[in-house]
Design a protein around this nucleic acid. Structure first.
Length: 623
RNA sequence: GGGGACGUAGUUCAGUUGGUUAGAAUGCUGCCCUGUCACGGCAGAGGUCGCGGGUUCGAGCCCCGUCGUCCCCGCCA
């Protein structure tokens, strides 16, 4: 039989009571975490968001309460009414925050029972994700998940607080908006009122926030939900949250200072000191030094080692002399066996004409001096893994390769990114050996974060990546495509090369990366209609076409648009880093599977004929 | 769209070269137990080996297909 709550009110949470509360009469309400039944003596561990407190039932002291506790099972919801008692010296539990006390119950009320759960929220060991997602409410009861969402809340609050202090206004923008054929696939919402037309869920509030600048709001931000109908990854969900902001009259540095400010505040909110300002690197430098546009600074970058080989050496090794020769170094990995090296082969991308040398012993036999110089240049220490990456001479530079004064060509990028991706893969694989990632885990797990502030300078390595190329070359169509959305402003001094040498044009576009993860990106926008038109022209988009796609926006641009710019940061990814999680699903309350299914509510589902008819939709199903 | 890993008790997993009655731990149920805290002891229940087809005297194991979960490429900022 279940009991009524009656007028009972909670006096303390289950994580609150300490030695100095001994003697107090208390009412605890919570879930049965565990029950230890010793016959005439029963221990109930009562759990809520705040912690766990041991409740004792002594048959001799209270027969009725003891009898109730006998019926209690894991995840029952229970009220314990009684007195706080200091535990005897030999039964103090130092592993529990409330371990110095216990509550001697005079009355137990079972407020609700529970089916036997498919897995226990009391266990730390995690069940398989399919089960976790189906029974998400049980999964979310686990201490780890409760902690993740506390982190998420604190980070969000700190960001809101900081931006609000800096005069930013939080303004909401529509979920039901207009489909724009740029970027990702849209999620569509059919209109009932207008047959055959659709709203789209926003991939980001991009155009709205720019229009808010035109509207004179000066500083806008939003904790904004975004929707993209693309295939998922561990760090990609179909709906995700961005800290989206935009401001008028900014220099790039103005935006950096804002973001650094709220990042520092967000980290401080969870007890981590993050030094500012963040370092900066240009896109080209990032590619040269890390082979990737989201460098992980916790490990050494690439080293240019072309000089260690003579021209004839390069020829002997079948290395293309026109392309970069770089070394990657992973500390403390030790010498790899033949088998280990074989196993690593699939991690290297040879598709775009890059190759690598990982057998230094063999190299040393023919080129002893080169290896000596290699060790010098890379500052390698004993036991560091060194691998040389270069262009394969057998793959000839194709006519489509993009050569432009001062910029990296496609094939150069191919070599750098093959090296950069290999570096990342090997770093993941040998994480136990180099220990650079463990530093982050230690800070995340540090208990000192609750009481004070932990130094996060080695564990969290943010970096601004600036001056991305304005255009990307599409080898299939031979056309120049916008590397970002087409409202990104080019550098003013590169404007005259828009059509003559598009590859050389730098965008006023920047990314914030941290620990090898892209946290966010933004840009200084185009505020002049004539410049916008030039960009469309450079992209081969006719005036007519531009009007059809973005007419409303081009119209707005003509009514006194101030210079403006902004950024959007992935809140989920930020929280993921701070929670030490390896998937976004750990920091999103109700996430979707890799096939974009919600296993708990079972969505998506078919809908009734009637609903479809009202929406003027007829499904076309493949057999 | 493509590649890979996995799918056996509620859960986590083992299951030999294809062989007779599919195991362990944990959870669950019952009984016992006054200082446990992952309590302990005894007894017990619990299986469509994801699903469908095939090979075979015989399939959890081999083959084909299919579904689901995860990771990656493509895609996506």
């Amino acid at each position: 039989m279940l009991d009524f709550l009656g007028t009972l009110e909670r006096t303390h949470t289950c994580g609150e009571l300490r030695a100095q509360d001994a003697g107090k009469s208390v009412v605890l309400l919570g879930w049965v975490n565990r029950r230890r039944d010793h016959g005439n003596l029963i221990f109930l561990d009562l759990r809520d968001r705040y912690g766990i407190t041991q409740v004792v039932l002594d048959k001799e002291l209270s027969l009725a309460a003891h009898a109730k506790a006998e019926q209690a099972r894991p995840e029952y919801v229970v009220a314990a009414i009684g007195k706080v008692r200091l535990r005897g010296k030999d039964v103090v539990n130092p592993k529990m925050e409330t371990g110095e006390i216990e509550v001697v119950a005079s009355e137990i009320r079972i407020l609700n029972d529970a089916k036997v759960p498919p897995f226990s929220p009391a266990e730390e060991a995690i069940s398989n994700e399919e089960v976790r997602l189906k029974y998400r409410y049980l999964d979310l009861r686990r201490a780890e998940m409760q902690h993740n969402f506390e982190v998420r809340h604190k980070v969000t609050m700190a960001v809101r607080e900081y931006l609000s202090q800096q005069n930013f206004l939080e303004i909401e923008t529509p979920f039901m908006t207009r489909s724009t054929p740029e970027g990702a696939r849209d999620y569509l919402v059919p209109s009932r009122v207008h047959a055959g037309t659709f709203y789209a869920l926003p991939q980001s509030p991009q155009l709205f926030k720019q229009i808010l600048m035109i509207s004179g709001f000066d500083r806008y931000f939003q904790v904004a939900r975004c929707f993209r109908d693309e295939d998922l990854r561990a760090d990609r969900q179909p709906e995700f949250t961005q800290i989206d902001l935009e401001m008028t009259f900014p220099q790039q540095e103005t935006i950096f200072r804002m973001v650094e400010g709220f990042m520092k505040a967000a980290f401080a909110a969870v007890g981590i000191a993050l030094p500012t300002p963040f370092p900066q690197i240009t896109y080209d430098e990032a590619m040269r030094q890390f082979g990737i546009d989201k460098p992980d600074l916790r490990l050494p970058g690439l080293t240019d080692v072309k000089e260690i080989f003579s021209a004839s050496d390069l020829a002997t090794l079948a290395i293309d002399p026109a392309l970069p020769v770089v070394a990657l170094r992973i500390p403390k990995v030790g010498e790899l066996s033949r088998k280990e090296r074989d196993d690593n082969r699939p991690l290297f991308d040879t598709r775009k004409g890059a190759k690598y040398i990982d057998d230094l012993k063999r190299l040393e036999k023919s080129f002893p001096n080169a290896v000596v110089k290699l060790r010098e240049l890379t500052k390698a220490e004993e036991g560091d893994l060194l691998i040389i990456v270069a262009g394969d001479a057998a793959t000839h530079i194709q006519a489509s390769d993009t050569k432009s004064e001062g910029r990296l060509s496609e094939r150069e990028i191919a070599v750098y990114s093959a090296a950069g991706n290999f570096r990342v893969e090997l770093a993941k694989k040998y994480a136990d050996r180099h220990g650079a990632f463990a530093v982050t885990e230690q800070v995340v797990a540090s208990p000192d974060r609750r009481t004070g502030t932990v130094d996060g300078s080695a564990a969290f390595r943010p970096i601004w990546v600036t001056d991305f190329p304005m255009f990307e070359h599409d080898p299939e169509t031979g056309k120049w495509m916008p590397a970002h959305h087409p409202f990104t402003s080019p550098h003013e001094e590169d404007m005259d090369r828009l059509t003559s040498d598009p590859a050389s044009v730098r965008a006023r576009y920047y990314d914030l990366a941290m620990n090898g993860l892209e946290l966010g990106s933004g840009s200084i926008r185009i505020h002049r209609q004539d410049v916008q038109q030039q960009i469309f022209t450079a992209l081969g988009m006719s005036e007519q076409e531009a009007k059809e796609r973005f007419g409303f926006f081009l119209e707005a641009l003509q009514y006194g648009t101030p210079p403006h710019g902004g950024i959007a940061l992935g809140l989920d990814r930020l929280v993921m880093i701070l929670a030490g999680a390896s998937s976004l699903r750990e920091v999103i309350a109700f996430p979707k599977t890799a096939k974009a299914i919600d296993l708990m509510v079972d969505a998506p589902t078919p809908v009734s004929e009637q609903q479809l008819r009202e929406l003027h939709i007829r499904p076309v199903l493949k057999d």
